[in-house]
Design a protein around this nucleic acid. Structure first.
Length: 480
RNA sequence: GGUUCCAUCGGCUAACGGUUAGGCCACAAGGUUUUCAUCCUUGUAAUCGGGGUUCGAUUCCCCGUGGGAUCACCA
């Protein structure tokens, strides 16, 4: 049974890299008809942000990544929140100490700083070894009686090597004497991530450990722990990082986009998922559009890349347009309704407007900019009438606009077709290029260089009276 | 600095040791068009450097260079 997990710490911020880790873990589980679980790594009480578990729940839910087991969905392997598992960790740390694979350290912060400093001067190429590692039984007892709290460190073998295999990076071997003796249990009685993840992954029967690349160098130490307990070592899948354009890591402080930020910018969850799935992975074909269900079928961890990828919005934006176009119109309108300017739907046929913008939207936040001219023509410069290809300039535009006004006046049934043929009528009569009429009319009606739809489509939507008013205003503007 | 990982167009990436090194985004040009939107076509653009191994290296090995990760009572 394949079992994977996503184990975020509740910091209140779901960045793209985290989400991708969750996605890959989810895909690996689902692809193998396995289980995907959510575990909350809240062993750092200082860092835990209130309500941030909600951010995790809602992000996963919006992304469509559902878990089979989690804090609010017991699957028999709980609790799924690490701060509720203290007794489990305590039991295992005792076991490790009695096996001699871990030891208590009584050093204070100050002692540690000093000792580390001294140690690095004497042995610049060796990892720090704490003096408490060689305490005898009676010394430990004396310290225990004297000092209330202590931490527990992992004891690393002096010699030998440790090898582990990662599905992405292959076999990696390190000398044990380059590994540091990390803290497993903190003075507050909670385990560090380094200890908790091993205990929990084993107890929760995680078969494939999917996590960020930053844990790769700790993996040998985890292996040593598994070996001490005599536990089966899981498959490792370490993921390369997602970087920003300047090569730095994505960070909340620098204001880099989180999942939530991207949603706020008008990106669809399905597009974001599609995009991040391909940051570091590809199906081996030239397909680029994937739904979450497609990914479950196509995804394979063997095809994950080893190098870091840079996150840019260009391709995400392009992909978002593809996803928008694939949305059924009804669904599109429902989502778009959150973005239309106020009053737009009460004044005009919102369905016609929706059809016009559906195919030409990159993000939903563009809706306002693309539709606000329906309500009010913006203050524009008459240079917009200048277009060589369309044989239009302010002077000819004024003439054409003056001529089209009476023609439009005779149109009785007002719609896209009749308006268009009315303009065609004038074009025929004048024997001019169609752009000479179409261009200025569109500018006059919209005040914009680029609009969703052409002149007659806009005229149709805003109606005969409004069209006449706008044309008249434009002529006046051009007369100045 | 120790350990370790990575390295193909500007970005994401493809290529049993044999390809004119392919695709997508972005960019540029042209075309279609009721818009400078959409759509279509074309183009610019890459194997980090140096040594090997090999008939042949983007691919395998070594060295260098560059970048990343890690070395917390954070995860």
């Amino acid at each position: 049974m394949v079992r994977t997990r996503f184990a975020p710490s509740p910091t209140g911020y779901m960045h793209i890299g985290n989400l991708r880790t969750a996605l890959y873990a989810y895909l690996i589980a689902k692809k193998n008809n396995g289980k995907f679980l959510l575990r909350i790594e809240d062993t750092d009480q200082k860092r835990t942000v209130e309500d941030s578990v909600e951010v995790i729940y809602s992000s996963l839910s919006l992304a469509g990544i559902s878990y089979d087991e989690g804090p609010d969905k017991d699957g028999g392997y709980g609790p799924y929140i690490q701060s509720e598992r203290r007794d489990i960790y305590r039991k295992h740390i005792e076991e490790l100490i009695s096996m001699g694979k871990a030891y208590r350290c009584f050093c204070t912060k100050e002692e540690l700083d000093r000792d580390r400093d001294e140690f690095s001067k004497r042995y610049p190429d060796k990892p720090f070894r704490d003096k408490c590692r060689d305490l005898t039984g009676s010394e430990i007892k004396a310290k225990t009686d004297q000092i209330a709290s202590c931490v527990v460190r992992q004891r690393i073998p002096e010699t030998g090597t440790t090898t582990f295999t990662d599905i992405v990076f292959g076999a990696i071997t390190v000398e044990n004497n380059t590994l540091d003796e990390q803290v497993l249990m903190k003075a507050d009685g909670l385990p560090t991530y380094n200890f908790a993840n091993v205990i929990d992954d084993h107890l929760m029967e995680i078969s494939h450990v999917v996590r960020g690349y930053e844990y790769l160098s700790s993996a040998p130490k985890y292996n040593l722990l598994y070996e001490s307990f005599g536990w089966k070592i899981p498959e490792y899948i370490h993921l390369p990082h997602i970087m920003r354009e300047d090569g730095k890591k994505l960070s909340k402080r620098e204001g880099d986009a989180s999942f939530q930020d991207l949603l706020d910018l008008g990106y669809l969850p399905s597009a974001i998922i599609n995009y991040i799935a391909m940051l570091g992975w590809n199906p081996g074909t030239e397909e680029e559009y994937f739904t979450l269900d497609d990914l479950i079928v196509k995804f394979s961890p063997e095809r994950i890349n080893r190098s870091n990828a840079i996150f840019t919005r260009d391709k995400l934006t392009w992909l978002n347009n593809i996803h928008i176009k694939k949305m059924p119109f009804e669904e599109f309108q429902k989502k778009a309704s959150e973005y239309y300017p106020k009053d737009l739907s009460s004044r005009y046929d919102i369905e016609k407007i929706g059809k016009l913008i559906h195919e030409r939207l990159e993000t939903f936040v563009q809706i306002k900019d693309k539709t606000d001219f329906f309500l009010k023509v913006p203050d524009y410069d008459i240079s917009l009438y200048e277009n060589k290809k369309m044989k239009s300039d302010p002077a000819t535009a004024k003439i054409m606009l003056e001529k089209i006004i009476p023609v439009f006046d005779t149109v009785t049934e007002w719609n896209n077709e009749t308006v268009f043929s009315a303009m065609n009528e004038l074009i025929q009569k004048e024997g001019c290029k169609s752009g000479a009429v179409l261009w200025p009319v569109r500018i006059a009606l919209s005040g914009k260089l680029s609009t969703p739809g052409g002149a007659s489509e806009i005229a149709d939507i805003i109606g005969k009276a409004e069209t006449a008013a706008r044309l008249k205003a434009a002529v006046e503007k051009l007369g100045e």
